Computed example of a mutant assay.
Amino acid sequence: MQHLKDILNTLETLKPYRPPASLTKLERAMERTSRHGLIAAAIPFTVLAMLAAWHKFIAHLSGAWITVALASAALSQLLAVLSLLCPPVLMVCTVWRWKERSRLLRDGEIDHEQTQLAQLERFDAAALQAAKLHLEVKIKRLERRLGYFIDADGKKMAAFSLLVLNFTVGNIFMKGDWSSVLTTDFNSPVSSQIVMMLLALLLGVSIGAMCVRFITNRESYRIELLDAALLRRAGS
């Protein structure tokens, strides 16, 4: 049991290879925008939601506050769109130097992995196998909680949900009426609020799925390290 805890504590310190040295400043900025864009988009959207609640339940907002709300919606939409567009744009920008990048990434990844595997050499095969089984069971439990009704990482669904929510709340400020959220066939205020709550629930579920997928990806990487360590020990 103590060996299992020691291996898991060691694995906590082992991170996947990240090649900042092989990326330009523009590429680093785009990568950060893609990684943190959705989280950043939630900040102005929170401001927008608070202003919408104030406008609906407490007192109507003045013209200046409505401008702030619309600006928050626009900023949130912009950040959400950037989080989706940056990965393909980054891929296009780096195509022209793909040979050099491939070599740098390959060499760096090999060196990084060998350094990490060296930290697992002090554990015997039985302990490594026990740690692998522990992580596999953990991933299966997380995936069962996640369910089968959401996409692979939840990121796209969360971004699209955020765009719809921004458009909906912005439309309320533009038209001044909650019934403007939907078409004339479903124009009751109650149905509009139900749709808003369902969309907000969808956003929350999607963000939760992103967090679960992040954990499972991290544990999968550790299982790969354990497999490599077991293979190295079997060959020695």
Rank of each mutant, 00 (worst) to 15 (best):
S220N: 06
A80F: 06
M1R: 10
R106V: 12
A53P: 00
L61D: 00
A80H: 03
H3P: 12
L38T: 04
K15C: 08
E12H: 14
G235K: 01
R103G: 01
S206K: 08
M1G: 05
A52S: 05
F160Y: 13
L38C: 12
R213W: 14
L82I: 02
L142W: 12
L104C: 09
A152T: 01
L202E: 11
R145L: 13
S191V: 13
D124L: 03
M157W: 11
L38N: 04
R101H: 14
C93T: 15
K56Y: 03
A40F: 11
D111K: 06
R18D: 10
A229C: 05
R106H: 15
G108N: 07
L26E: 07
E113W: 11
E27C: 05
S161F: 05
M197L: 13
Y17P: 03
S206T: 08
F123K: 00
V92A: 12
A53T: 07
W178R: 04
V95A: 14
A159L: 11
L8H: 09
G176E: 02
N171V: 03
S191A: 15
A53K: 00
M210V: 13
V95W: 15
D227N: 08
A49I: 04
L165G: 07
T94L: 13
L79P: 03
I39P: 00
E113T: 15
T33I: 12
A234S: 06
E31R: 10
A29T: 10
P44H: 06
C211W: 14
R18N: 02
Y221E: 05
K5S: 06
L128M: 02
A64E: 04
V164R: 09
A29C: 07
S179C: 13
L117D: 01
R103L: 13
K56G: 00
Q193R: 13
L163T: 10
Q114W: 10
E27Q: 09
I66M: 08
A64F: 11
A49L: 08
I39Q: 03
E12Q: 14
V181A: 13
T183S: 11
W54G: 10
E31S: 09
A21F: 13
M197D: 15
R32N: 04
A21S: 14
A158F: 03
F149A: 14
K56N: 04
L105A: 05
M210P: 09
H36K: 11
P20N: 02
L165S: 09
M30S: 04
A229H: 05
H134L: 00
A71D: 02
A52C: 03
L198H: 08
A29G: 11
A69D: 05
L162Y: 09
T168C: 02
C86E: 11
E219F: 07
S76I: 00
I172V: 01
A71C: 01
E121S: 15
L226M: 05
K175L: 08
R233E: 11
G37F: 00
L135M: 09
A234W: 02
